[in-house]
Design a protein around this nucleic acid. Sequence first.
DNA 1: TATCTACTTTATAATTATTCTAAACTATAA
DNA 2: TTATAGTTTAGAATAATTATAAAGTAGATA
Lengths: 136, 136
Amino acid sequence: MNQKNNIINKLRGSGLRPTKQRILIAKKLFDKNKTFHFTVETLNKKINKNGSEKISLATIYNTVEAFTNAGYLKEILTSKNKSYYDTNIKSHHHFYDEGTKELTDINYNQVKLSKVPNPPKGKKIKNLEVVIRLQN
Amino acid sequence: MNQKNNIINKLRGSGLRPTKQRILIAKKLFDKNKTFHFTVETLNKKINKNGSEKISLATIYNTVEAFTNAGYLKEILTSKNKSYYDTNIKSHHHFYDEGTKELTDINYNQVKLSKVPNPPKGKKIKNLEVVIRLQN
DNA sequence: TATCTACTTTATAATTATTCTAAACTATAA
DNA sequence: TTATAGTTTAGAATAATTATAAAGTAGATA
Ligand SMILES: [Mn+2]
Ligand SMILES: [Mn+2]
Ligand SMILES: [Zn+2]
Ligand SMILES: [Zn+2]
């Protein structure tokens, strides 16, 4: 029951009510010992396949957005049609395989930038992301 | 009339018939002395606003896809909902302003990567793109 | 504990970008 | 000139996402 309380506290800490649905989704997302990438589609399957609990697709969209705003998830923009999300919220880079449409993490220190341009005046850098597209 | 012949040859060279529509679109895209970024929406407006010629939206989609496959355009994946295209087909990087949703080129030599990971075995690197997201 | 209220979930409709379809048109090879 | 494969087009279809609004619920307060 400790994991559940952790989740409840995490949610409360972000002003999100710990509803049954959010707790369940948080378990699927954060109770692994490995981070991973997903789309709303794959998350929806993971949640709604084993016949057990059903969470509406709208709630899954709402929750993923809420978790992203709360900083629990990062959105990864690599694909034309679909949004990808990442449970790894540390700054890091990606391989994107255009064949399998799979994202793979590149550790932050696997890429070294020895020169980076200054942002236009009045703007600041929010993040810097390297995407390496792969082909066979 | 030389520009037009250039376009016609370019199209023929890629196995694309030089139709009225493709020539007109190619003029709008490649007859500038500066490269730029666009979406199908903005290109459609540029073409179909001055009341003159009308090209159907389907043709604009078809043509942009054909030009991308032919290597005349690069697709830039930075935005959740919309595809961006670039008339600058040289390898380069981008600022993406999340407020204005505008892309700005970063010259290739403005970024220096002193360390880059090896691709997973069996795959090779198709390209490496740095996107720097800006905020105010 | 009972009540209230703002927040949340949900089914479903709406929206947006894009792709598909199939009929009319056209570039060009023969 | 004719035949044909490629192209354009209006409109339908699809896919992802967002909006709507009614029903449900967490948590504050009496
Ligand atoms: Mn889309
Ligand atoms: Mn979309
Ligand atoms: Zn990642
Ligand atoms: Zn560019």
